[in-house]
């Protein structure tokens, strides 16, 4: 092709821009990779550095230490203790409350808007749940701390104003929109022919929804639950503000609790860079990262199965 000479320079510029586009496309992969490397790097001394291992190593993190207080998280005491099991228990019990509170509500709501409600009502409910998703977690934490805590305390007759139930319910508020959105997507992706066939056989709307549509959308529903669970485990500000933050080894929901994420948030600001405490906090961080990563992969796999199932049977 005969191009004028001035074109060569613009061809060169074009190549550069296209190269830039290709390069930035990998930013998400690079980002994930860097997160893993740079948090992992700070967590590694717990396994490798002799100095750090004297103060904190895997067995001190997970196994019982002395007779009187086998599991305690006291990183700033005279003899620092780094058992992360109380934090693990705290995280798990608050997550459990959140999930038990949020998943039934969100799934019920998703069933209603996708199967039973008239269109205008769905157009009203969906934006409100999106609104809930838009509330920053620090605001939910504020609400749980300043307003909700007193009511929860009275309702359940609890001694402590800030406790695992209060934090769990507030956490549930952050989980509802995620579960609802993913579940609603899954339910609406089930082909209309399923419903028509079921109705033609004489099934009622509820029978159709519960016995036909819900099972068909099950992989997507599972993905919704898994994603909600992941969000609850990693959420920080709500738990930090609403849970009371006491690291105690107890499954009692009426007591205060301290989560893994809130521990990082509360302690990393004051810690000496390079100390055992610092590395332990990064170890908690990389554990959270890996755990939520695995959950995300599960959710991804579930959604892929749903798509295959739904698209394959039309």
């Amino acid at each position: 092709m005969n191009r004028p000479k001035t074109m060569t320079r613009s061809r060169f510029a074009e190549g550069a821009v296209e190269w830039l586009i290709r390069a930035s496309a990998f930013s998400a992969i690079v980002g994930l990779f860097l997160i893993f490397i740079f948090i992992g790097k700070e967590a590694l001394p717990i396994l490798t550095s002799p100095d750090v291992r004297k103060e904190a190593n895997i067995s001190k993190l997970f196994l019982p230490q002395d007779q009187a207080h086998p599991y305690s998280w006291q990183p700033v005491s005279e003899i620092p203790k780094y058992s992360i099991l109380p934090l693990f228990v705290g995280t798990l019990k608050m997550t459990l409350v959140a999930v038990l509170f949020a998943i039934p509500l969100a799934l019920g709501a998703a069933l209603f808007t996708s199967e039973f409600s008239p269109g205008w009502l769905k157009e009203f409910i969906k934006p409100i749940i999106e609104l809930l998703a838009g509330i920053p977690s620090v605001v939910l934490g504020f609400f749980a701390l300043m307003v909700m805590a007193s009511y929860v305390q009275e309702l359940f007759g609890i001694v402590y104003r800030l406790n695992a139930i209060n934090a769990g319910i507030a956490l549930g508020l952050a989980v509802i929109p995620i579960v609802y959105t993913v579940a609603d997507d899954a339910l609406t992706s089930v082909p209309k022919s399923y419903r028509e066939a079921s109705m033609a056989m004489g099934a009622s709307p509820w029978q159709t929804a519960w016995r036909v549509v819900f099972p068909a959308a099950l992989p997507g529903i599972l993905a919704a639950c898994v994603l909600g669970f992941g969000r609850a485990i990693g959420e920080t500000m709500i738990v930090l503000m609403a849970s009371g933050n006491a690291a105690i080894m107890s499954w009692n929901l009426a007591k205060p609790a301290r989560s893994l994420s809130a521990t990082i948030a509360a302690e990393l600001g004051e810690v000496v860079v390079g100390s055992a405490h610092y590395h332990v906090l990064f170890f908690i961080g990389i554990s959270l990262f890996i755990f939520t990563f695995v959950l995300n992969m599960f959710a991804h796999w579930f959604v892929a199965r749903l798509q295959k199932k739904v698209l394959g049977t039309i």
Binding site: I35, I39, L288, F293
Partner: peptide, 20 residues
């Protein structure tokens, strides 16, 4: 990767900001 990045807890980003 994008899907996974969206699911990383916010506090982990804080650690990353500090470490990286």
């Amino acid at each position: 990767a994008i899907e996974n990045l969206a699911g990383v807890p916010a506090i982990v980003f804080g650690l990353f900001g500090l470490g990286f």
